[in-house]
Simulated scan of single mutants.
Amino acid sequence: MAKKRTISQSEIIELYMNHVLIHNENPKTIYIFAKENNFEEQRFYEFFTSFESLEQCVFKTFFDNAHSILEKSNDYLNFDARNKLLSFYYTFFEILTANRSYVIYALENNKTSLKSLRNLGKLKKRFSNYIEHLNIKTLDLKQERLIKLQDQSLKESAWVQLLITIKFWLDDTSASFEKTDLFIEKSVRASFDLIDVAPLKSIIDLGKFLYKEKVQMN
């Protein structure tokens, strides 16, 4: 009897991603998935409770990889909050692009259900925690209740912005996703200008860009 392979969490994720891209469906069962890849079924349960929990870990892993790359850069560590967020976006979307086929499978193929949102649950927790620790300057409120409300609103709006950017990227047909890069730069700048109560020039600029893209797509 062949000896079962020792396998890591990241290897299981990679095997799962390869399976769904080749077969365009989940493995039938965890038992079959483990048997086909010559590892003990119990090893799967050391990391995940189901294929659904594995799918959530995929997007969390994309975030963790992007964050790990950034944390190794001295330039990034010295950036202000705006440029840190910009750097995160560019790095995160490079990783998404490298795995675009899987992201399309996981999100677009399930866009009519709640499954895609569940897939992003752990990513949301990671990203919200990241936003919380960016030390973004906001209004200097004196009441603790208002401060908590403002912080929560900031995290929720940042999450919505990330979802909108992912949707834009999924629909982007430009070479090397150049329009997504432009959208990232304009939307992050606009969001910070709103927080800083700065002039509305960048907001108008973003609006013109989105209107032009909508007209072209139609």
Rank of each mutant, 00 (worst) to 15 (best):
K124G: 02
R82Q: 13
D193S: 07
H23N: 12
M1D: 09
L141F: 15
Q143F: 12
N83G: 04
E46C: 07
I136N: 00
F92E: 04
E213F: 07
I32F: 10
L85E: 04
L123R: 01
D80Y: 04
Q56Y: 01
F47K: 05
N135W: 03
A98F: 13
N109L: 08
S73Q: 10
F63H: 02
Y76V: 05
Y211V: 08
L21Q: 10
M1N: 10
K208L: 11
L70V: 06
E94F: 13
K28F: 09
T165A: 13
S68L: 11
K201D: 15
I131M: 01
Y16G: 02
K167C: 06
E213P: 04
S101E: 14
L70C: 05
V188T: 06
Q216I: 15
H19V: 04
F127K: 01
D151A: 05
M17T: 13
A175R: 11
N26A: 13
E144V: 14
V103D: 02
S202D: 08
W159M: 01
S113I: 04
E14W: 05
V103Q: 02
A106I: 05
D193I: 03
K60F: 07
E36R: 12
E25M: 08
Y90R: 15
K60Y: 09
N218Q: 15
F48Q: 07
E36Y: 07
I195L: 13
I195E: 01
F63V: 03
R82F: 03
K60I: 04
Y102N: 00
M1K: 09
S116G: 09
L134E: 02
K28D: 12
A175Q: 12
L117W: 05
D193H: 11
E41P: 05
E40R: 10
Y211M: 10
I203Q: 13
Q9M: 14
Y105M: 06
V197P: 01
N24R: 11
A34L: 06
P199L: 06
G207S: 11
A81W: 00
Y16V: 00
K212R: 15
Y105R: 05
K115N: 11
H23E: 12
F88C: 01
E36V: 10
S68M: 08
A198W: 05
D80R: 04
S68C: 08
L154Q: 03
M217H: 14
F93W: 03
A34S: 14
Y130L: 00
Q9W: 03
H133G: 00
N99F: 12
N18Y: 07
K125E: 06
E156G: 01
L107N: 08
I136C: 00
K155L: 00
Q161M: 12
K3F: 05
M17G: 03
K214Q: 13
E213S: 13
S157A: 08
E108I: 09
I32S: 15
F168G: 02
N24C: 06
K208N: 13
K35Y: 07
K137Q: 12
L77H: 10
L210Y: 11
F209I: 06
L70H: 04
D64E: 15
A98C: 14
R118G: 03
K4R: 15
